[in-house]
Simulated assay, not measured.
Amino acid sequence: MPNAPALLRPLLIAAGWLCVGLGVAGIFLPVLPTTPFLLLALWAFARSSPRFHHWLLSHQWFGPLLQDWERHRVIPIRAKLLAVAGMSGGMIWVTFFSAAPWYAAALMGVTVAYGAWFVLGKPSRRPDGLP
């Protein structure tokens, strides 16, 4: 049962689908992350739509990763490496190859550092020892 107020549910569903779209785009665009958007979508759907939440958890490609996150707060080592590599690549591109102002690059650096700290701080294996 969704736990968001009835008026908020359509907004959460829309945000969930926006995050799914951004997550899928992140598969093809190296600067855009996939996993954080899918986790946000999972969060939004959990509060607004059992149907979409179940769909995302049972998705052929995203489901296993999201199930491990929801049940055990686990991020597999491969996802960690891809996330940190993508964040680092994006940071290098913005810093050295874009016309972004220094304060935008600095803000991105702080955001990337927090994202890397968060991702790397989570366990890589489930409590039962399985990857």
Results as ranks from 00 to 15, higher is better:
L66Y: 05
P76M: 08
W69F: 14
G86N: 03
H59M: 03
G86H: 02
G89F: 09
R51E: 00
Q60S: 15
V84F: 01
W55C: 01
W61K: 11
S49F: 03
V84W: 02
L81W: 14
V84I: 12
S88K: 00
S88W: 03
L56F: 04
R51P: 00
W55A: 11
R73M: 09
R71E: 14
W55G: 01
A83I: 09
K80H: 06
L82D: 04
A83H: 10
A85R: 02
Q60T: 15
R73N: 09
F52H: 14
M91T: 12
A85S: 11
I75T: 10
S58Y: 00
S58A: 09
H59V: 05
D68K: 15
M87I: 12
K80F: 08
W55E: 07
A79M: 12
W61P: 01
H72R: 07
A79E: 12
G86P: 04
S48L: 07
L66V: 09
E70R: 14
R71K: 15
K80Y: 07
L65H: 10
A83C: 02
R51G: 00
H59F: 03
G63L: 03
S49M: 04
F62V: 11
F62A: 13
G86L: 07
H54G: 11
R51W: 00
L82C: 09
H53M: 05
Q60I: 15
P76R: 15
V74P: 07
H72W: 15
R51H: 01
G90Y: 04
G89T: 02
R78S: 14
G89N: 03
F52A: 15
G86Q: 05
L82P: 02
S49I: 02
G63F: 08
R78C: 04
P64I: 10
R47G: 08
D68A: 13
I77V: 15
H53W: 02
K80L: 08
H54E: 14
S49Y: 01
E70C: 07
V84H: 00
R78K: 15
W61N: 04
G63D: 01
R73A: 14
P64Q: 09
F52K: 11
S88R: 00
H54Q: 14
K80R: 12
P64Y: 08
